[in-house]
Amino acid sequence: MEYGSIDVERWAPEGAHSQARGPFERDRARVLHSSGLRRLGAKTQVLGPASNDFIRTRLTHTLEVAQIGRSLAKYMGADQDLVETACLCHDLGHPPFGHNGERALAEVSTAIGGFEGNAQTLRLITRLEPKRFFPDDRPAGMNLTRATVDATIKYPWGAGEGRRKFNVYEDDRDVFEWARLGNEGQCVEAQMMDLADDIGYSVHDVEDAVVRGHFSLESLRADSDRIVSATVGWYGGDSGRLSAAFERLFPLFPPTYSGSQRDLARLKDLTSTFIGRFLTAVTDASPQSARYTGGVIVPDDIADEILLLKGIAVTYVMAPRELEPTYLSQRSVLFDLVDALWDRPSEMEEMYLESYRRSGDDASKLRSIIDQVAALTDQSAMAWHARLCGMLRSPL
């Protein structure tokens, strides 16, 4: 795949760099050294990071997605550093408490365009992460190349454009348009990032749920109809095709899991089998293409299998958790923090306080507060809540 001077251009001008590293390799290094990536180590993936030493955090999920994405890039002729970097970026904008926290911040920011983890990722890599500035002292975030920024854009549209998920707030429309250059749809590297994420969490969330005891492997056969129904209810899909996907995947699961070293090894082999199965099918079906023509082709049967695995996590973890007091308490913590910082903005970290002070209206001030809360980890959100709001609710 060819990359030209436009693809490696950066949002803010920079001086000449050593030729020892290519532009996408440099992007990868910037993300690996970023504070945003480090924070993912203490943010919820599906199960909270404090719940078990084995459980994946946003950071371990991100590293696994990056490896899957790099494999896709290798097999499909894209730049491996570029795709890996997009994968490393893909969850940087997620707030404390995973998708639960995302929903809470979306609710409190409705009047200013909402909150979306992918839009927050774009904001972080192009504005909030402290690395580069424009000559007029405006922050430029990590100042990644145009191609890398574009590869992080999972949903190439903004808030209010007729879809629930989106990838840009109006405040950040200028850098979104700069990265997109008028192109429609995802570039092929963004498609690889998107698929790597789907494969990663579909497979690994099931592994975590087994290890954590949310379901037993012996129960899978008896629960097949329930799993299919939950999948359709949460994600959509065709129940007949999902039932067929279950029949294809069920024989691959080990019959039991006891927590022994042998059983852990079998479970790891299962995740490797699934990932290899999905990558092989996709790369066999996807001819090499230009960045905006052609793309990643996921065969229908593979798409159904990935969706079914996501549905297993829904059935045993995500849907039951919706009604747990802990889950409701997590949202309350973030609601309280936004209210507390609105009343006492001086409590924000200095970089977010600077942004707040530069704000010309209440909407911009609220966005700065949302930026601060979104940057917190699960643990720091709880600590801030204890300090600023008095009585500590314990969602973990």
Rank of each mutant, 00 (worst) to 15 (best):
F250V: 04
L366N: 03
L217V: 03
K74E: 04
L267Y: 06
L195V: 15
D225W: 10
I68K: 00
M1W: 00
P130Q: 06
D284H: 11
A159G: 06
R70I: 02
I125L: 09
S380Q: 13
A86R: 02
T377P: 15
A386T: 15
A374T: 10
S346F: 09
S35N: 14
D53H: 14
D194Y: 09
Q261Y: 05
A281Y: 02
A313R: 05
K74G: 09
G41T: 11
D343I: 06
V282E: 01
G93S: 10
P13I: 03
T110F: 06
K165S: 13
E170V: 06
A363N: 06
G98Y: 01
D225V: 13
Q372D: 07
P95R: 00
E84Q: 12
I153H: 06
G4A: 13
S229L: 11
G22Q: 04
M193S: 08
P254L: 12
L279N: 01
H99G: 06
L242D: 08
A222F: 12
G141K: 02
D198K: 11
A363P: 00
G360I: 01
L267I: 14
I297K: 06
Y352S: 02
K310C: 10
L195K: 10
F274N: 01
Q19R: 13
P156C: 11
C89F: 06
L63N: 07
P96M: 03
I275Y: 02
G160R: 02
L376W: 15
L40V: 08
V338K: 04
L63C: 04
Y352A: 07
D371K: 07
E84W: 04
L82F: 04
E322P: 10
L122F: 05
R248N: 11
D284Q: 14
H90I: 02
G114N: 09
V188F: 07
K131F: 00
R70H: 03
S202R: 09
D81K: 01
S289G: 07
D81A: 14
I68D: 00
V210C: 09
G15E: 14
L32Q: 14
R56D: 14
D27Y: 03
A245S: 15
E102H: 13
L59R: 11
L334Y: 02
S71M: 03
L63V: 09
